[in-house]
């Protein structure tokens, strides 16, 4: 436990130092960069609201990752699953009749998002269970395909592109019908939606599932020893496929919440790398859903702060990605020191 704290503390320290170096390299003095970062996190209701929305997306993806990881699977396909969830949600959200009640519309939208993501992860799950193909490589490659599908959907009028009226028509979908938009959580100047509530509920349900149900215990057994789980009569394939599909489904819901938030359209690159960041959150949390919630919030704030860092202090936003990957490399690289503690 003490070694764990040391490792995490050390990793955070290294990441902070790298962050400071990057800020300095971008020409921003530490105080300027710090101020810009802070403003981007808490400086305005807008900033904090968008941080919360990002937190929700990350928490949903990381929760799914944790569930699949419990069964021994590594889902690196969050990005593609979000893309498919977004496409499915858009398809539903633009075609609902005008008078649909909001509850119904939102439910339909989220279910579509879940189904889209679950389907995409289901491809990898099926290949893993039936053909023994490593899910890391398939979910990874399917990310590229999924992102191209978004591109396809927003460029083809036969699919989801808004009617082209002039050469300036943007390649994006029509906006969602009013009823399918996520209600705001607080004041109108903050974009925060009920997505954060949705994410919190998912985290709590997942924590209950993994800790206090037979299914959770079975998933753990499958993750720790497939042969022993099979010997004891657990449906290994079904548990694995199911957990990966749920992971994809939650990523799909994350995609759907992005679509159902301002500006309510499906556009190129709407996933903006959240799939990867969600994966990082899941890895850092190492199976603890409390940690998922906490790290998601930290990373959500960091993402929002990073945007302001670029706008206000001229430090490329890519530095946030660098800091995140340094963090994960440090934690993953320190694994033998933690193992030493376990002995």
């Amino acid at each position: 436990m003490r070694r764990d704290l040391l490792v995490y503390g050390g990793a955070v320290l290294v990441a902070v130092l790298v962050g400071l170096a990057l800020a300095a390299g971008g020409g921003a003095a530490p105080d300027v960069a710090g101020r810009a970062l802070w403003d981007g996190m808490f400086g305005s209701p807008y900033a904090f609201g968008s941080a919360l929305n990002t937190t929700a997306v990350l928490a949903l993806i990381a929760t799914g990752f944790t569930i699949a990881h419990r069964a021994g699977l590594v889902n690196v396909g969050g990005e593609g699953q979000m893309a498919l969830g977004g496409i499915a949600a858009t398809a539903v959200g633009v075609s609902l009749p005008a008078g649909t009640p909001a509850v119904l519309a939102l439910t339909a939208l989220l279910i579509a998002g879940f189904a889209g993501g679950a389907l995409w992860a289901g491809v990898a799950a099926w290949l893993r269970v039936r053909r023994g193909v490593n899910e890391v490589i398939t979910t990874l490659l399917l990310n590229f395909v999924g992102l191209c599908l978004v591109l396809l959907a927003v460029h083809e009028e036969a699919l989801l592109r808004q009617p082209v009226t002039s050469a300036d028509t943007l390649p994006q979908s029509e906006p969602l019908v009013e009823a399918a938009r996520l209600p705001l959580l607080g004041p109108p100047e903050s974009p925060a939606t009920i997505a954060i509530v949705l994410a919190a509920v998912s985290v709590i349900v997942a924590a209950l599932l993994l800790r206090h149900t037979a299914t959770g215990t079975r998933l753990t057994a499958v993750g720790m020893s497939e042969p022993a789980a099979a010997r004891l009569g657990l449906p290994v394939g079904r548990l694995q496929a199911g957990s990966l599909a749920v992971a994809g489904g939650l990523a799909g819901v994350a995609g759907a919440t992005l679509i159902a938030t301002v500006p309510y359209v499906l556009a190129e690159h709407f996933t903006s790398g959240y799939g990867f960041t969600g994966l990082v959150v899941g890895l850092l949390a190492r199976g603890s859903l409390t940690a998922v919630a906490g790290i998601s919030l930290a990373f959500g704030l960091l993402a929002s702060g990073g945007i302001n860092l670029q706008l206000a202090a001229g430090v490329p936003a890519a530095s946030v990605q660098v800091v995140q990957s340094v963090l994960i490399i440090c934690v993953a690289g320190a694994v033998i020191f933690r193992k030493g503690a376990a002995r």
Binding site: V74, F276, L283, A318, Q321, S325, G333
Partner: peptide, 14 residues
């Protein structure tokens, strides 16, 4: 796998 994917993100960001 984890460090490889993370290294890619690091390279992309950097």
């Amino acid at each position: 796998i984890v460090t490889g994917v993370a290294a890619n993100a690091l390279a992309l960001g950097a």
